[in-house]
Design a protein around this nucleic acid. Structure first.
Length: 153
DNA sequence: GCCAACGTTGGC
DNA sequence: GCCAACGTTGGC
């Protein structure tokens, strides 16, 4: 079992959208590092859901992988913003996974608090200027978030 | 293959 | 709106 953190702008796709959809596809990832992390995900892996680019960036809940990496359909659609003309069905460049909601925290855990808490030292997310939108999270850091916010904690 | 310029992400 | 980080592009 591995743990991950995924970022999304809530205006674009929020954790409430995932709740409504039940199962959501994590599409439009167009960074090789992030894609490689998507491909490393296993069914049942848990994800911290982080809202970025908003007033209070925060970890807002937990999701889980229900379908492992497969070709991201948005890369083949010329109408889609993530369209990649160099990607072919035979040799797709980009991947997506399907996730489902596990829990929305009653209180989001703001990035500012994560940065203040020494438990999270070394976490990719707290690195200044960290842009990686799909990143691995250590069990220790994952459990620390759970302890602070999850009803399971 | 090096590296400067530029664009994007995302926190503040 | 600013800026740090860093990926990408393109000249050489």
């Amino acid at each position: 079992m591995q743990y991950w953190l995924v970022k999304s702008e809530p205006d674009c796709y929020s954790i409430e959208d995932l709740k409504r959809e039940k199962v959501g596809s994590w599409t439009d990832v167009r960074s090789y590092q992030a894609r490689n992390n998507l491909r490393a995900m296993k069914k049942g892996d848990l994800l911290l859901f982080h809202h970025s680019g908003c007033a209070v960036p925060a970890v807002v809940g937990i999701a889980k992988v229900v379908k492992e990496a497969y070709p991201d359909p948005t890369q083949f659609d010329p109408k889609n913003e993530g369209y990649d003309e160099k990607s072919t069905v035979d040799n797709p460049r980009w991947s997506t996974v399907d996730v489902s909601l596990v829990e929305i925290f009653k209180e989001p855990l703001p990035l500012a608090e994560i940065k203040k808490n020494s438990v999270f030292t070394g976490m990719e997310l707290v690195k200044q200027g960290s842009r990686l939108s799909v990143q691995p999270v250590s069990e220790k850091h994952f459990n620390a978030v759970v302890k602070l916010r999850s009803k399971q904690g």
